[in-house]
Simulated scan of single mutants.
Amino acid sequence: MALSADRNTPLKDGKEIPVPMAAGAKVYGGGIVVANATGYAAPGSTATTLTYLGRAEEQVDNTDGADGDKTVRVGRLKAFKFENSDADPVTQASLGKPCYIVDDQTVAATDGTSTRSAAGIVVGVESDGVWVE
Rank of each mutant, 00 (worst) to 15 (best):
D86I: 14
A5F: 07
L95E: 15
S117Q: 03
I32C: 00
I121T: 12
A23H: 03
V102G: 00
D61K: 06
E58R: 10
T51N: 14
A93C: 11
T63M: 04
E16N: 13
D88V: 06
L95D: 14
T71I: 11
Q92H: 14
Y40A: 05
V90S: 05
V90E: 05
R76L: 03
S114F: 13
D69N: 12
C99N: 09
V123S: 12
A37Q: 13
P18C: 09
F80C: 00
L77K: 09
A109P: 10
K15G: 14
A5Y: 12
N84I: 03
V74D: 02
Y100A: 01
T110K: 01
R73L: 13
A56F: 00
T9P: 02
K15Y: 14
I121D: 05
K97P: 06
V33I: 01
G29M: 09
T38R: 14
V123R: 10
A47Q: 13
S117N: 04
V125I: 12
T91P: 13
E57Y: 12
V102L: 09
R76T: 08
D61W: 04
Q59I: 04
T113N: 15
T51C: 13
G68W: 10
D69H: 09
K81W: 03
R73D: 03
I121E: 11
A109E: 06
C99S: 08
N62G: 06
L3W: 08
E58I: 00
L53D: 05
V74H: 10
L11Y: 15
A22L: 01
V19A: 02
G129N: 13
I32Y: 00
D103V: 02
G39F: 05
T51W: 09
G31F: 00
V60R: 05
G65P: 01
Y28E: 15
T49N: 15
D103W: 04
D88N: 12
T46D: 15
P43N: 00
D69M: 10
N36I: 01
I32E: 03
T106H: 04
G54N: 01
